[in-house]
Design a protein around this nucleic acid. Structure first.
Lengths: 275, 275
DNA sequence: AACAATCCTTGACCTGAATCAATGCGGCGC
DNA sequence: GCGCCGCATTGATTCAGGTCAAGGATTGTT
C-alpha cells in the first residue's frame, strides 16, 4: 500500500492542518438575527427543525449562530473537544477519518439538512472539511442539551436522522466489503442522484462537487481506479462526463443493473424507522 | 468473484430459508410474567431500559414478550414487514445484507443490550440470524410508538444507542475501505475484546461464537484469508487459537500495533455523544 | 493571456487477496 | 466408541485493483 506522509495527511485535511472553526480565515459567524432566515432555510423540510412550530423555532434560533466556511476549510477535527454541533444549510462537506499513515476513509458527504459533530467521550469522532462553500447553523452542546429537555420533538427528529444515517452506513458497508469497483461507482452515482431528487433537485445531470480522490476515499478505491471506471462506463454509453464535476446518466437501467440492483428506496419517513 | 447460488444464500440465511420469528421451530414466546426477569436482566445497565425506574419498567414490560431463538434461526428477514422490534438479552446475533448473487456482508454482531429491527419504509432494513441460542424482548411497533410519547426517556436512550452504533459503523467503514487483511483481523479481535470488557466479561480469552465464514463476511474477506491470517498471527506469537471459537491474546501491544492504533475508546456515555 | 497548481487520465507492471482444490479435524448423533 | 459432516486449514494459481510513472486538462491568479 502506498503511504501518504503525515504531512500530506494534514494538508489534505485542510489548508492549515490545524484549522478549527475559530481560527480559520474565510469563516464568518454571527448571532442569528431573526427567524426570517429559518423560514427561508434551504434545509427546512428535511432537517432537525422540520417538526418545530414558529414559536419553538424561535427558541432554537436563540441559541444558535449562523456560520459560513470557505471550500477547503476543515471545521471539525477528529479528537478535538466536541464543543459544537452543526446543522448544514447549504453546500457539501466531506466527513472522514484518517489512519496514522495518512490513509483516509470518507464516511459520508453531508448536505443541507445533515447534522455534524458526533462525539465520543467529549471529542469529535471524525473530521469534516467543506468541499464547496458551506453555510450552517452552529449550536453549543450545553445549550442544545438544555433545549432537548424542553423540546423532545427535536430529540425525536434527531433519532430519525440518526437512523437514516445508520441505514446509509450499513449500505456503505455492503459496498465497501463486497462490491467490485464497477458496482461501487454505479451505486455511488445512483445514490447521489437519488439524494438530489429527495432534496428537490434534478436527479439527472448528477453533480459531483468532490474530486476523484474524494470519490476514491469514499468508495475504498484509488483515484486511478475511479477514473478508469468512469472512462469505461462512458465507453459503454452508460454515462457521459460533464467536465470534472458532473455526470450525465445516459442509460439509467444499465447503471441500476451494474450497481447490483439492491433496493433503492427513497427513504425519509423520520420516525417510521424506529417504532 | 465467486458467486454463491441463490439457494445457498437462502440456506445460509437460516435453516429454512424462509424462517420468520413466527413459523420457526426452536422458538418460544410468552407474555412477560412480571418485572422480576427485567430486574435480573443480563442486559440491564447498557440497554434501552437502563434509565427507567421500576414503575416505568413495568409499563414497558406490559407491552413486551420474552422470546427465545435457537442457534441458526433467522428471525428478521430484510424486506419483510417490520412489525416488531427486538432487544437482545443474551446470545449473539449476526446482522447482514445479501446481494442478489448471494454475496453477504455482515454489518454487525449483536449482543445483550443491542436492539434489532431497523426499518425502511415499513420493511426490515437487514436480516438477522442467531449465532448462539438467543433470548430477547420483543415489542410490537405500534405499542412501542405509543409508549415513546409517554416515556421520552426511552427515546433518548435509543438515540444514545443509535449514535454508538453509528460510530461503530464509521469505524467499520474505515476498516472495510482502507485496512489490510492483517489489520482487519487485529482490529476485530481487539474490538471483540473491548466489547466483552464493556459488558463486564473477561477481555482476554476472546470468545468467537461465529464461524470463520462469518468473520470473513464481517471483515470483507474470504474464509481462507481469515484462516491464513489467524495462522500467521499465531506463528508470530501474537495470539493463540483456543479451538475454533476462542483466541488467546498473547501480545496485546503487538496486536494494537498491527491494528493501526486508532483510538480504542471504551464508549458508553449514552447522551454525551449528541449534546 | 500566460502561468501555476491541481486534478484527471492513461499506460505498464505488481501484488494482496480471491479462487480453486485438497486435506485435516472435532463435535454430535447413533 | 465410531463415523460423519460441517468447518478449518493449507497449497497452487489467478486476477482485480493498487502502485508507479508520464502526460493532458481545468481552474484560478496576476
Amino acid at each position: 500500500m502506498r503511504e501518504k506522509s503525515r504531512d500530506m495527511a494534514a494538508q489534505q485535511a485542510g489548508r492549515t492542518g490545524r484549522a478549527t472553526a475559530e481560527d480559520n480565515a474565510g469563516t464568518s459567524r454571527r448571532r442569528h438575527p431573526d427567524m426570517h432566515t429559518c423560514e427561508h432555510c434551504e434545509a427546512r423540510g428535511f432537517n432537525m427543525c422540520n417538526a418545530l412550530d414558529p414559536n419553538e423555532l424561535a427558541r432554537l434560533a436563540a441559541i444558535m449562530s449562523d456560520q459560513r466556511f470557505d471550500a477547503g476549510t476543515t471545521f471539525i477535527e477528529e479528537g478535538a473537544p466536541a464543543d459544537d454541533l452543526f446543522n448544514l444549510t447549504s453546500g457539501t462537506v466531506k466527513v472522514f477519518k484518517l489512519l496514522a499513515d495518512g490513509r483516509c476513509q470518507i464516511t459520508g458527504f453531508m448536505m443541507a439538512g445533515d447534522f455534524l459533530g458526533l462525539s465520543r467521550g467529549g471529542t469529535y469522532a471524525y473530521s469534516a472539511t467543506a468541499i464547496t462553500p458551506v453555510t450552517c447553523c452552529r449550536f453549543q452542546r450545553p445549550q442544545l442539551r438544555g433545549l432537548f429537555n424542553e423540546l423532545p420533538k427535536i430529540e425525536r427528529q434527531m433519532l430519525g436522522l440518526a437512523m437514516n444515517e445508520l441505514m446509509a452506513a450499513q449500505d456503505q458497508m455492503v459496498l465497501l466489503g463486497r462490491k467490485t469497483a464497477r458496482e461501487r461507482i454505479a451505486s455511488f452515482l445512483l445514490a447521489l442522484s437519488d439524494r438530489a431528487v429527495r432534496r428537490g433537485r434534478p436527479g439527472n445531470p448528477v453533480d459531483l462537487p468532490m474530486t476523484r480522490g474524494d470519490i476514491a476515499d469514499y468508495l475504498g478505491l484509488t483515484t486511478e481506479t475511479v477514473s478508469r471506471t468512469f472512462t469505461q462506463l462512458k465507453g459503454e454509453g452508460v454515462i457521459q462526463l460533464k467536465g470534472n464535476h458532473g455526470v450525465d446518466i445516459i442509460d439509467l437501467d444499465a447503471l441500476v443493473e451494474i450497481a447490483g440492483q439492491e433496493d433503492r428506496v427513497a427513504c425519509f419517513h423520520p420516525f417510521d424507522q424506529i417504532a
